[in-house]
Design a protein around this nucleic acid. Structure first.
Lengths: 118, 118
DNA sequence: TCCTTGATCAACCTTTCGGTTGATTAAGGA
DNA sequence: TCCTTAATCAACCGAAAGGTTGATCAAGGA
């Protein structure tokens, strides 16, 4: 599980772009070079290269060396870490939405409890 | 499952900020008002209000009306939709990373296959 | 050696993001 | 009615995102 806040920032930010998500989808079928990854898009190869760097910094992908090629691999562990974070909050407690009025009237609820990210 | 690309954009972007993730974490323990959500942070209430609007537009939270209060609720369904998206690619195919060289040498691999986001 | 291929670096531009402050709206309560 | 509380709107600002073009680097191959 990722606990560093900046790591989560970069990982979620990396997924917040259709080009980068499409690259993830492509890499789930196997590694690919920058040229291969750039081919489906209308933007420049430099732009795709930047997207890959964003994914790499988020540790969602890794790169190896093969002569002048720099093949890109998916890093599934990082994707798992993101689902792990989401799953912390995905299942909310039974009955907590039962009655908003009851909650607001019984004192100030959890007011003052410092929200803390795990 | 979310299939609209802009919906995924806004949802992942919404999670790419420590303040907003902290708000999600807080809301997983029950609904809260803007003032309650703003209390742990050193930024202005207006800034927190903006963060909540980002989460609301991403449909990660919803709001109700209670007199002059606008309590915020978590929308777990949206979080589930995100894990569903990630899970498409989380489990990569057996053996696809076996040998990069083999892949690159056996023709051009999957070159030309249009990457398509589901 | 020279050329080609694969990919990055660098500079620049425009738009969006995250924050601020000040004014305004909306709903009760005295 | 007037005041307080809850929250948003509006205008503005600096930083970062996402794109472009042009130059450069690195590794083979003829």
């Amino acid at each position: 599980m990722i606990s560093d806040s900046t790591a989560l920032d970069s990982a979620f930010l990396a997924l917040a772009d259709p080009v980068r998500r499409s690259i993830i989808a492509r890499l789930s079928r196997g590694p690919a070079t920058v040229n291969e990854l750039a081919e489906p898009f209308e933007i420049s190869k430099q732009a795709v290269s930047k997207h890959i760097q964003v994914l790499e910094q988020a540790q969602l992908v890794t790169r190896t060396r093969d002569a002048q090629r720099r093949p890109v691999h998916l890093n599934p562990a990082r994707l798992e870490a993101l689902t792990a974070w989401i799953d912390q909050y995905r299942l909310v407690r039974e009955g907590q939405f039962r009655s908003l009025d009851a909650m607001l009237q019984s004192s100030a609820g959890q007011r003052g409890a410092k929200a803390k990210e795990q």
